[in-house]
Amino acid sequence: MDDGTWVDPAGTTDITFGKLLGRYKESVTQTKRSRRSEEYRIGKIMRHKIAEYSMRNLTTSILAEYRDQRLKEASNSCVCRELATISAVITHAQREWGLSINNPAKLVKKPRLPPGRNRLLKPAELDRLLHELNAERHELRSKWLVPLANLALETAMRQGELLSLLWRHVDLERRVAYLPITKNGKDRYVPLSSAAIAILKSLDRVDERVIPISQNVVLCAWPRACKRADIEDFHFHDLRHMATTRLAQKLPNVIELSAVTGHSNVQMLKRYYHTTPEELALKIG
Score class of each variant (00 low, 15 high):
T5C: 11
V7S: 07
V7W: 02
D8L: 09
P9Y: 04
P9M: 04
P9V: 11
T16Y: 06
G18A: 12
L20H: 00
G22A: 14
E26Q: 11
E26N: 09
E26I: 03
Q30W: 03
Q30V: 14
R33F: 08
S34A: 13
E38T: 11
E39G: 07
Y40R: 14
G43E: 06
K44M: 14
A51R: 04
Y53M: 15
S54H: 03
N57F: 01
N57W: 00
N57L: 11
S61V: 15
E65H: 00
Q69F: 04
R70A: 04
R81M: 03
I86H: 09
H92W: 07
W97R: 02
W97G: 04
I101N: 02
N102D: 13
A105Y: 03
K109C: 01
L113T: 08
N118G: 05
K122R: 07
L129E: 08
N134D: 15
N134Y: 01
N134C: 14
L145D: 10
P147A: 06
A152I: 03
R158F: 10
E161M: 04
L162H: 05
L166N: 13
W167S: 14
R168D: 15
D171N: 12
E173S: 07
E173D: 12
R174H: 05
D187M: 10
V190S: 12
S193P: 04
L200E: 10
L200W: 03
K201F: 08
K201M: 12
V206R: 15
I211H: 01
P212E: 07
P212T: 04
S214I: 05
Q215R: 04
L219G: 10
W222I: 11
W222L: 12
W222E: 14
C226K: 00
F234E: 04
H235K: 12
F236W: 10
H237K: 07
R240G: 10
R240H: 05
I255Y: 08
L257G: 08
Q267Y: 04
M268G: 12
L269Q: 14
K270T: 05
I284M: 10
G285N: 08
